[in-house]
Simulated assay, not measured.
Amino acid sequence: MQRRAQREERDQRAKRLSRVLVCAAAVPVMLVAAGCSSDSGSGESTDKAANAAASASASPSPTVEAAAYSKLPEPCKALSKKTLEDLVPESKSGKEGKSDDVSTRAGCSWDSLDNNGVKGSQFRWLNVSMLRFESDVTRGSGDKQAQEFYAKQVQESQAVEGAKGAKSEPVSGTGDQATAVRYDLKKKEGTFKQQTVVARVENVVVTVDYNGAGLAGDKTPSADDLMKDAKKAAKEAVKAVSEANGAGGKAGSAPSESASGSASKSPSKGASNEPSKGATDGPSKSASKESAAKS
């Protein structure tokens, strides 16, 4: 009986030990499983972050249509010798406007005084300015910016202080869109006939200012004749812009569908964005050639 009891006690001890060993062996397995699970979560987070970064880098950056024209012609050579002889016959040379960058802003002016002594004098002043717009993601395409500036330029040319009888009309066959504005400006020296033609070709705006007056009793020039000459000069200047960029056919094209029928901003002096004051100025103090050139 005693031996049986001892055997049973040993068997029970063996069973308890077996259970302890089984539990001890299970602990590392659980730890390993927990470790794998933890690593899997970390890897998944890393993958998600990498995917998000890749998605962000793959998203397209803002883009804008490239400007058609990248340069401007030499402003004092934008008009032919024949045209200059017709419009400003007494002018010896053009005066180039100041510009920080002639590829985006350029202009040239000429003045002419045909002095006939006691019989009076004929005064003419001609200015060609060109402004080119670069495409920019914040401001939009060069073409769009040029359209906006064109509209302002015509509007301002119709609102010059002291202008009398201002009229405007569309001009065909000159770039993508063009508008002519005319008015009279009376001064003590005489009545000045102002003609302004604003034209746009692609991302460039060309403004031609041309005025004339009969001084010291000479007859006032015909506004129709002056406007005809101004339109001719504008067409040549637009063509010069196109040719400078290797696109000679654009200058004489019909207005594009995108061309707005409304007009835009006032004449700019030389290569400036600001409205030209000299465009409507005749001789300020006398009919001499020197004072006319300064006006």
Rank of each mutant, 00 (worst) to 15 (best):
residue 133 F to Y: 15
residue 134 E to R: 12
residue 6 Q to Y: 07
residue 291 S to H: 04
residue 148 E to L: 11
residue 32 V to D: 04
residue 214 G to R: 11
residue 216 A to G: 06
residue 11 D to G: 05
residue 246 G to R: 06
residue 253 S to A: 15
residue 233 A to I: 01
residue 5 A to D: 15
residue 33 A to L: 08
residue 26 A to S: 07
residue 150 Y to T: 08
residue 14 A to Q: 13
residue 152 K to E: 10
residue 37 S to H: 07
residue 126 L to K: 07
residue 197 V to Y: 03
residue 21 L to W: 12
residue 230 A to E: 08
residue 216 A to V: 08
residue 204 V to P: 03
residue 240 A to I: 05
residue 202 E to H: 02
residue 168 S to F: 06
residue 31 L to D: 00
residue 266 S to N: 11
residue 87 L to E: 11
residue 109 S to W: 01
residue 83 T to G: 01
residue 240 A to E: 04
residue 274 E to C: 04
residue 294 K to P: 00
residue 202 E to F: 00
residue 101 D to W: 05
residue 287 A to D: 12
residue 280 T to M: 07
residue 100 D to Y: 03
residue 137 V to K: 12
residue 185 L to W: 04
residue 182 R to I: 04
residue 194 Q to V: 15
residue 115 N to W: 03
residue 104 T to E: 11
residue 22 V to E: 05
residue 106 A to S: 13
residue 168 S to H: 10
residue 72 L to I: 12
residue 128 V to K: 03
residue 292 A to T: 02
residue 161 E to P: 15
residue 11 D to V: 14
residue 38 S to N: 08
residue 199 A to P: 02
residue 280 T to K: 10
residue 233 A to P: 01
residue 22 V to K: 01
residue 53 A to N: 12
residue 228 K to Q: 11
residue 169 E to R: 09
residue 62 P to I: 09
residue 214 G to C: 00
residue 283 P to K: 13
residue 183 Y to C: 08
residue 134 E to K: 13
residue 208 V to K: 07
residue 266 S to Y: 04
residue 233 A to F: 10
residue 5 A to G: 11
residue 195 Q to H: 01
residue 277 K to T: 09
residue 33 A to T: 10
residue 17 L to E: 09
residue 169 E to P: 14
residue 21 L to T: 13
residue 67 A to W: 00
residue 27 V to E: 10
residue 285 K to E: 15
residue 200 R to W: 02
residue 153 Q to D: 08
residue 52 A to E: 09
residue 166 A to W: 00
residue 101 D to M: 01
residue 100 D to P: 05
residue 234 A to T: 10
residue 126 L to D: 00
residue 120 G to M: 03
residue 43 G to W: 06
residue 45 S to A: 14
residue 282 G to Y: 01
